[in-house]
Nucleic acid binder design. Structure first.
Lengths: 187, 187
DNA sequence: TCCAGCCTACCGAACGTTAGGCAGGCAAAA
DNA sequence: TTTTGCCTGCCTAACGTTCGGTAGGCTGGA
């Protein structure tokens, strides 16, 4: 368990936080998941706030890589926009989990400052990427790409939240389809 | 304190839950807010699950009245659609609070079953009202009004969530404006 | 007399966190 | 080559606090 225990903790904490939030993250349960004792986590993270911030940071670092890779491999901005909601869909498929950023936005008032800061990183990465891709695709006027990117990110987050409350991934698909039909997302 | 203590508890619990969620709702803090002792709450609600369900139920009952009143007094479905996001805006203005339904959708996996059920009521009321008003306004084809209503509700919820994470009501306004510009909301 | 409404005084469980120790590996000193 | 000492990674055991919830008693008005 010694090799990469820190990484194992980060991954387990992320999964739990996506299902039960920062508040629902318990050192005892997390340790049991990983196969060590609660106190041992302090060898890797100084406090729960530190752990939470590390989880959130790793979360947006991972999505940044994933989005950039998608754009590189397809080379097609329009195809990227079509695939974008899929990153949110996957959380729902994986145990009806939520985007970590959405969960922490809800819990915002309860979060240590460091966690709040890292939470925003995820949204920033998504919006910057969307704005770039929207512009590349010529889907909106350059002046409006940033605003539209924010709108898409917020709307897709909301769709995930609603679908989760119904425990129904198909509901997410229907909402995305409505976003396309209305013009929010390029069809 | 005796007269309407139950109502006072409900109102205080709703405000706290909109800021800190169902999990952040503490009997001791709630009692202190209301001016009684924690144990006394059990005279009015049999358990925390009961209290949570009552709060959620009252929440969607109130919004149902508010929306119907809006439609009656203006008599103008288009004006109603313009005003609709205002109900979400007001929570943000009031201490950066979230829609109770959004918070509980995030906490979904941690909620007692009775609370889960009442949580959905809020979304149902909003969507039914939106579908009716969209149809009255002739904004979408009758066949599509239900789907569009769901899309609007989810998107506005997402906008509120995002604006909350920035503690910035203006961000909410900008998102709603983008929804209008893109065609999701009638302009 | 009865009961609604609130109280005091607890309970067991869970929380994040700390103190202190033990085993093993690696590296410099003898 | 052996000894010494430090460091990593994990442990047990407990800390004080907060949690939802319970038992039982007091009080004032109908």
């Amino acid at each position: 368990m010694s090799t990469n225990a820190k990484e194992t903790i980060l991954a387990a904490a992320r999964k739990t936080a996506q299902a039960h939030g920062y508040g629902g993250l318990s050192y005892r349960d997390l340790a049991a998941d990983v196969g060590i004792k609660a106190a041992s986590i302090y060898h890797h993270f100084a406090s729960k706030a530190d752990l939470g911030a590390a989880v959130a940071r790793r979360y947006w670092e991972d999505i940044a890589v994933e989005l950039d890779t998608m754009l590189e491999t397809t080379g097609d901005p329009m195809e990227c926009l079509r695939r974008y909601p899929g990153t949110f869909r996957r959380s729902l498929e994986d145990g009806n989990r939520l985007c970590l950023c959405s969960f922490m936005s809800a819990e915002y008032a309860n979060l240590p400052e460091a966690v709040q800061r890292e939470t925003q990183g995820f949204a920033d990465v998504n919006i910057a990427w969307l704005a770039k891709v929207l512009e590349m695709a010529g889907a909106v006027k350059p002046k409006e790409s940033e605003a539209r990117a924010r709108a898409i990110f917020a709307a897709v987050s909301g769709a995930q939240l609603y679908a989760r409350s119904r425990s129904d991934v198909a509901e997410f698909d229907r909402l995305i389809e409505s976003y396309r039909a209305s013009g929010l997302l390029p069809a």
